[in-house]
């Protein structure tokens, strides 16, 4: 596997550094060749920057991509917004030589050039495609059999598909497969593909943001779900923080929100504290307690599979 730079993005590092903790731990556990590199800026965020200045949005993203290319790396990000923005600009430049030329004439002034050939991955499809389901399954220490989770993909993990091209943009499957590989049941629900709505908080429409969060949380409350699993700091903000605010005002949902790296971290043997789970605003104790109670019951890996594993068929 080619070495990759981790693009943490502004939100994770500024607001949710504990998500960086779990991400680093799972990278370590899987022995992945990740690198921290100096010099990144904001991806930049689309709704703020692109709405005001499309050219600056492209140029800033191109600069970040060019840095990765110059070091001969690929890129992986645990932030959906970052990946989607970077990949969208990357594709625009690949399809428009004149634009790429104009961008490069400016990047040259800071010693960079963008070619458009680095792979830009979101962490979830990256685990599915590059690490692989079997490698994930084989590292599970305590399977999550019996745990019922609701997957929230997050729009920009998979869309726009002409730029990301990593899963079906309307009926994706990779996140489900990964979570199922840990032993969880991915519970079908009506609002599964609904946008979290956090964008409304960024345009001074807090009540509308809460309204959107409430729709999904209400459905999940009615479904006997143990946690919602996602992998986007903006969606996390919407469902952890805004759920907390609504509960403070008397509404009851009680849905623990787990980042994919946290769920994966737990399954491969890290402790809840080590992963930073006490930093969540909505407590995750109900999830942990149930998991401990039923822990791995009846979840023996199948005979054929373990036999194949014994002879090293799965590699890694």
């Amino acid at each position: 596997m080619k070495d990759f730079a981790v693009f943490w993005g502004c939100t994770i590092q500024a607001r949710f550094p504990f998500l960086e903790v779990s991400t680093r731990l799972v990278f370590e556990r899987f022995g992945l060749p990740y690198r921290d590199i100096d010099g990144f800026t904001c991806c930049p965020e689309k709704s703020l920057v692109n709405n005001i200045d499309h050219g600056l949005w492209e140029l800033t993203a191109a600069r970040n991509i060019a840095m990765v290319e110059e070091m001969g790396l690929n890129l992986v990000s645990p932030c959906t917004g970052c990946v989607s923005n970077l990949a969208t600009v990357n594709k625009e430049l690949c399809h428009d030589e004149a634009k790429k030329g104009a961008v490069n004439s400016m990047l040259k002034e800071v010693g960079l050039e963008v070619g458009g050939h680095a792979a830009l991955h979101h962490l979830v499809p990256f685990f599915h495609d590059e690490v692989g389901i079997n490698a994930v399954r084989s590292r599970v220490v305590i399977p999550m059999k019996g745990m019922r989770v609701a997957i929230h993909y997050g729009c920009h993990m998979i869309r726009p598909s002409h730029s990301l091209n990593n899963d079906d943009p309307l009926e994706p499957v990779k996140f489900d497969r990964l979570v199922e590989a840990l032993g969880c049941e991915s519970v079908k629900h009506r609002t599964k593909m609904m946008c979290c709505g956090q964008g409304l908080d960024r345009v001074d429409q807090h009540e509308n943001a809460l309204h959107m969060a409430r729709i999904k949380l209400r459905e999940l409350s009615s479904l006997d779900i143990d946690a919602m699993v996602l992998c986007c700091p903006s969606c996390y903000l919407q469902f952890d923080n805004n759920q907390f605010l609504m509960e403070k005002d008397g509404e009851k949902f009680g849905i623990p929100i787990l980042y994919f790296t946290e769920l994966l971290g737990l399954a491969v043997g890290y402790g809840a504290e080590e992963l930073g789970l006490m930093n969540h605003r909505v407590g995750v104790a109900p999830f942990l307690e149930k998991w401990e109670r039923i822990g791995g019951e009846g979840s023996e890996v199948g005979g054929l599979e373990s036999e194949l594993e014994d002879i090293g068929v799965f590699g890694l």
Binding site: R159, M193, L200, V203, Q205
Partner: peptide, 13 residues
């Protein structure tokens, strides 16, 4: 005009 969430569902369908 700020209520479009740029989720790209309209683009994909």
């Amino acid at each position: 005009i700020w209520q479009c969430l740029e989720c790209h569902h309209c683009l994909e369908i």
